[in-house]
């Protein structure tokens, strides 16, 4: 099954929409994690969903919790 992956060039210019802080790319979960905001933004079919409404709240101590 072919899955669209996110363009690395796009990841370079993205920041957290809430804090404008850096994002960490979790390739296993296909999420962009903002440690400062404690939010994980999903990437669906290669498209980062940078909407605060759609983000998952994460514990900054356990960022890759499932």
């Amino acid at each position: 099954m072919s899955k669209r992956t996110v363009d690395p060039k796009l990841l370079e210019i993205l920041v957290c929409p809430l804090t404008k802080g850096p994002l960490r790319y979790d390739s296993d979960a296909d999420e962009l994690i903002s440690e400062q905001a404690g939010l994980a933004f999903p990437i669906r079919d290669g498209i980062p969903i940078m909407l605060i409404d759609e983000a998952r709240t994460v514990d900054s101590d356990a960022p890759s919790a499932t």
Partner: peptide
């Protein structure tokens, strides 16, 4: 703002809100 629209746009697309843009300076 619409994920469904961004998905159809092709190329380097993302869903983002004009009121909270996720781009570096």
């Amino acid at each position: 703002l619409s994920e469904a629209m961004a998905a159809q746009a092709g190329g380097m697309a993302l869903a983002a809100d004009e009121e909270a843009l996720p781009f570096t300076d």
